[in-house]
Amino acid sequence: MEQIEQYIDFLRNTHILIAPVLFIVLHGVRSIFFIPVIAICIAGGMIFGVIPGIILSIIGLLLSSVIFYGLAKKMPFITKRLIKMKAKIKTNDKQLTTGQITILRLIPFIHYHLLSFLIYESTEDFRSYVGASFYTVIPMAVVYTAIGQTVVNFSPIASVAMFASLIILLFLSRKKSDRVSVREFLR
């Protein structure tokens, strides 16, 4: 029994280190679980606060980019799907600049690894890839982590109102064939 108490005490005292490490690892493996990058950045702001959340998100996003780089080098078949995606959205052969990719990272609907692939194609080596990736993830981490911290500061009434408005928005944005009239809904 004494050993269990010591173990629980140890976990309580070291959770300060375990939570950030788990958060960074989650960034690294999030694509396996189909978790959006933005959701993790927002969660970082909610859990750790603005400054620690930003730092941990930048580290985690860089880890994710490094993992992508390694996989792209070792298994080029992974990039074939990204080449097809790139062909659908990019009509000319001009390479996007790092600044343009930085702005595109702020748009939540653009695939994170597609943008990493564009950086991968435009850089010569690992060092320049990491440098460009670092530059592109900073604004993304700052914006979405700050949003996460802001959500925490909402009053309970504001949180319920926001949640209700999202439900209504989702209800109204369904396909026309799936919509149910108000009369049918109330029956």
Results as ranks from 00 to 15, higher is better:
I16D: 06
K88T: 06
N92P: 10
G45N: 12
T102L: 10
I18R: 11
I58H: 11
K74M: 15
I18G: 06
R105P: 10
I32L: 03
I54W: 01
I54D: 03
Q95D: 09
G53C: 08
E5R: 14
I89N: 04
M85K: 11
K74S: 11
K90D: 11
V50D: 12
K86H: 10
S64R: 00
V66G: 06
L62Y: 03
G28P: 00
G99A: 06
N92S: 14
T102Y: 03
L61A: 15
L62E: 12
I38P: 00
I40N: 00
I51W: 14
I78L: 15
T91I: 09
A43K: 11
F33G: 07
L17P: 07
R30Y: 01
L63K: 03
V25C: 14
S64F: 01
I35V: 09
L11Y: 07
D9W: 02
T98E: 04
L26M: 15
L106I: 08
Q100N: 10
K84L: 13
C41S: 05
G28D: 06
L82C: 08
A72E: 00
A43Y: 07
L11K: 02
P36L: 09
K86D: 10
G44L: 00
L22N: 03
Q100Y: 02
M85E: 07
A87N: 13
I101L: 04
A19L: 14
G28N: 05
L62D: 06
K73C: 11
A19H: 05
P76H: 14
F10Q: 05
R30K: 14
K74A: 13
I83Y: 08
R105A: 02
D93H: 10
G53F: 10
G45I: 14
E5L: 09
K73M: 06
Q6E: 11
I32G: 06
K86R: 15
L62H: 06
G70W: 13
V21E: 12
I24M: 09
K94P: 03
S57A: 13
K80G: 12
I42Y: 09
V37H: 00
